[in-house]
Design a protein around this nucleic acid. Structure first.
Lengths: 339, 339
DNA sequence: CTGTTAGCGCCTTCAG
DNA sequence: CTGAAGGCGCTAACAG
């Protein structure tokens, strides 16, 4: 490593420099780095020695261009500032890194136009595969992606018209099951606070319609603007309490919002969960789970990420693998006792 | 967009195909896409039309190789599953995307060996710039990075030996200020629960030593293993209560841990903050801030991210810009009243 | 096991 | 404003 610093690193080194230094052809040097088993042990070591001595760093752009394999996987998601998405993305990257891939992250935000531009830029890097967390908004984007001819995994959702592989769960099932569960526990006065997010809306719609079919109508729904944050919970609860007959159970589209509701309830002196029960939605390992008074719907973001990575790596290893794959990762309804 | 789907997308299109379709040379087509101002309006539109008609997606690998400009920025951070880092990374990416750059994310974890491998792989993509959140662990890595000759921003910290630009705050100052603040408020019986993370340790050390100089010695410190999570807070508090004279104030290295402490306190029936005060550390907009009983030290992750992006973009635009830049983003000590 | 020959797709440079 | 030539750094495909 001393050598590294000593050398004149002015002009970027190429494989040719390394080859010259080691007294072999560029091709042999290339093989020594990428398919060591094809090279004589002794020459290989000589080459690796030169690599170290010169501090050579292979130019992956050139390599990818020549081999049309980039060892790059793009991950498109609404935002990484959301523990659910971040947890999934982290797990995917961990596994991918392990397998020698790197992750190009594209935050799509919630704007379809940006999303299209982003997708095009990302596809321009010629990733070997792509992961969509939260699906794509426009059909143009989906067409573009389909045209790219690379493996795609859609995560965080289960759709009727998958692009390729999918790993997720049904947001409709979440909504419906919540309705049944809390009605069975005796609740009748529901209210919903949801962020203005497609999947949150779907859970909410399913919940409301299932409640209706159980005889509970006119459930107040507060839709809060993105980005999500605990403040939405505070504001949401205040609206709910101001404008309606107060609910006994508030269902939130995320744990973050639920925490805000808890905070507001506390400052209003409302006993949780006796006077007001609160339900969130989030990762199994997240904060929500820590607070006894919060009942929550949990998904295992990390596990989902691992399944996504496996699906993709499988396909990358074998073009026929995992065709039509659809994994339902499920979710859990957790009631916290006041233990 | 209908055209997109209709075409035989079998063989990947090249700029040459577009040029032929438009009846110009590849060079003109290239310019039409990258430096439109150098091309006659009419021909440019003809070319863009061909691009659309064929569904051409430029190969950025080839472009980057030829121009040695990748419009790629690498962001290395311990993990994105941590709202502080994620918030910063998100803000950086937002600004970068806006400016036409893309983000390659490298999760370094907490293993120096992985970090070195990751850095090498990342540098292989020839990013135009690199952001380090949480610095690099080994000197070999730092040497490699220095040798790469690209702009570097170190975030989340302020160091005596910066590689290049830095945007962050002093973890020592956080620790010292907490000591003064809470002693001034009358607390004497402190305890610390910290994740086993370098910056957490530094805050803790500064806190303990400042407390010592204020006459408070033997502060119990619980170091908890990574990865961080609310469970660490529960366990940590239990240990603290079991093994020592109970503290009046528990200082946690993160809000997540603090939430765990609050949960444990609640289930033990401890009144917060009267019987036990809890202090966290986290993002201004995060959950911690929502809960009235939690006092917290806050940093503004998003703002820091924006400053990082500006620093980098400035340098990218002008090689002489921001040399030696060191921005102290500061932090805030927030006491929540039980309002 | 190793070397040679040709590009990968684009952009720089220089000439029109 | 547009075009032709050459090369970015690497690797496939073949030959030895």
């Amino acid at each position: 490593m001393a050598a590294l610093a000593d050398l004149p690193r002015d002009l970027p080194l190429t494989l040719a420099d390394v080859a010259k230094h080691a007294g072999v052809s560029t091709m042999t040097a290339s093989r020594a780095l990428n398919r060591p088993e094809l090279v004589n042990q002794a020459t290989r070591e000589k080459i690796l020695e030169s690599v170290r001595a010169l501090g050579y760093v292979p130019n992956l752009l050139a390599g990818s261009l020549a081999s049309s394999k980039s060892r790059l996987v793009a991950i498109l998601l609404p935002t990484i500032s959301h523990s659910l998405f971040a947890g999934t993305a982290q797990a995917i990257m961990d596994r991918l890194t392990e397998a020698g891939y790197q992750a190009l992250i594209g935050p799509t935000g919630y704007s379809p136009e940006k999303e299209e531009a982003l997708l095009e830029a990302v596809l321009g890097r010629r990733p070997d595969g792509i992961v969509l967390i939260g699906s794509l908004h426009t059909t143009a984007s989906r067409a573009r992606l389909a045209g790219a001819g690379i493996p795609v995994v859609e995560a965080w959702d289960l759709s009727d018209q998958p692009l390729d592989m999918q790993v997720g769960f049904s947001h409709e099932a979440v909504g419906a099951q919540m309705a049944g569960h809390y009605v069975a526990k005796g609740y009748r006065r529901f209210a919903v606070i949801t962020a203005d997010d497609p999947r949150g809306h779907r859970r909410c719609r399913a919940l409301v319609s299932e409640l209706a079919s159980l005889g509970i109508a006119d459930v107040p729904v507060q839709v809060m603007p993105l980005p999500s944050g605990w403040q939405l919970g505070r504001d949401g609860l205040r609206c709910l309490l101001a404008c309606q007959t107060p609910p006994h159970l508030v269902i939130c589209s995320s744990d973050t919002i639920a925490l805000g509701v808890l905070a507001e309830a506390a400052s209003l002196g409302l006993q949780v969960p006796t006077q007001l029960a609160v339900v969130g939605f989030g990762d199994l390992n997240e904060a929500s789970y820590a607070y006894p008074s919060l009942s929550t719907v949990s998904v295992n973001a990390a596990q989902m990420g691992r399944q996504v990575a496996e699906a993709l790596l499988g396909r990358l290893a074998d073009p026929e693998c995992n065709r039509g794959l659809a994994v339902d990762t499920g979710f859990m309804l957790l009631d916290r006792q006041s233990s």
